[in-house]
Design a binder for these strands. Structure first.
Lengths: 229, 229
DNA sequence: ACTTGTTTGAAACAACTGTTTTATACCCGT
DNA sequence: ACGGGTATAAAACAGTTGTTTCAAACAAGT
């Protein structure tokens, strides 16, 4: 008994189910729901029965692809922990928080911008974002919510008690997410418009640009506040 | 002879071809290429033969939908003319250029953000942006190039001779496009994350926020330049 | 009224769709 | 060696796909 797999216990091959997720994710990313089970299975090198055997039906394979995309992104590009930040307003703690924000934005940018490690995941998740399907909406919501709440908290810490406000945090967060997402959403757009410089596609570079911009805005707000007081 | 239409010359109905584009665009936006000719024709209230008669095949109907989306966006939300701007560096001309930039960004934001007048066009074009199909890539390229070149030129004018540089223009333009696109790309994302304030969805409000941000950055650069010189 | 070219709907078409069935190979504990 | 659970492939399944055919309806010119 037991659920040990059948014929691949001694070799280092990947299981048919994993191969199917990998291959199906790529094809779903390209063609959406117009992808057929036959071309998926042909690409995975298995019979058409495999999908229904391992996943029940085509739709559940699709859901698993999106879930796998979320899981892999969180695993490959973890976001720095912001749960227990030391209090204090001295310069050193402030600098530390700003560097933490920078690391956070880099992780965010790597998730949406890195092409080498996760080719189809971004496209698939983007499809769900612009035309959400009911089956994965909740799952995708948890994925985004978790990291967003961390970002929101971190922004509050960077802003400090004086500046911190929900409205300002939301404005900055919107900016950050918009420009991070553009790493992927604007891919073909940049190609068309000739916006592609070598560093324009590098997640870390874009993240730093965003971070500098955010910190500059905060700095300007702080200056204005001091002047008016 | 002649190509006068058959049965709708005296009534103010729309032709079957136009009805098909309108209905097909909406369904294509929802389901992509998985949309079927039968559900399109059922929604348009005509027989399945209509698509092949008026457009040749399903694929060419899809291309026409994207083209129609581009055309209507340009018509509904025209971008201000920036071809013949008066020279000069006095305060009044500078203010005028900044207001022109604001109008430009508002038009951009209305294109991607207005839901009432163009419900499916944005989704359809976004689909093409994240997963371009060969048949419409060129058409879409022309659409974006035309307005982008105007924006690039306008940014150069706003920057002025001292600050103006291709790299800086590109950086600002990337920011503008990213945040404008987020009006649509981040729609469901904002809903999930609770970023939706009443004004957060209003194109004009977002455009003004972007414009202020851009002008502030330029202003900061100008100050730094004066200090260092 | 008759012809001409245009537009439409119902039916038919072959090809393809997702899924199920059936039979065979495989590994593992006994 | 053998039986039981697991995995796979080939074939068959009913339903749907995009497209075509064909006859009829229609408006306009003569």
């Amino acid at each position: 008994m037991g659920k040990r797999s059948g014929r691949l216990s001694q070799a280092s091959e990947v299981s048919t189910a994993e191969r199917l997720i990998e291959v199906a994710g790529e094809i779903f990313a390209q063609k959406g729901n117009a992808a057929t089970v036959r071309e998926i299975c042909a690409a995975a090198g298995c019979s058409v029965a495999a999908i229904n055997y391992h996943f029940g039906d085509k739709q559940r394979l699709y859901v698993r692809c999106v879930e796998a995309a979320c899981e892999r992104k969180q695993r490959l590009f973890p976001v720095p922990n912001v749960d227990s930040l030391p209090g204090g307003t001295d310069l050193q703690t402030r600098k530390h928080r700003e560097e933490l924000l920078r690391e956070f934005l880099r992780a965010l940018a790597r998730r949406t911008g890195s092409e080498a490690t996760a080719p189809w995941q971004n496209t698939l998740m983007l499809r769900e974002i612009i035309a959400p399907s009911e089956q994965v909406a909740e799952r995708l919501g948890e994925y985004f919510k978790a990291d967003f709440q961390r970002l929101d908290r971190l922004l509050g810490e960077v802003l400090g008690e004086v500046l911190n406000s929900p409205a300002l945090r939301r404005s900055l967060a919107t900016q950050i997410i918009a420009r991070s997402m553009f790493l992927r959403t604007g891919k073909s757009l940049r190609a068309i418009l000739g916006l592609d410089t070598p560093e324009n596609e590098i997640p870390e570079h874009v993240a730093d640009e965003i971070c500098d911009s955010i910190l500059n805005q905060i700095s300007a707000l702080r200056t204005n506040m001091k002047i008016s007081s």
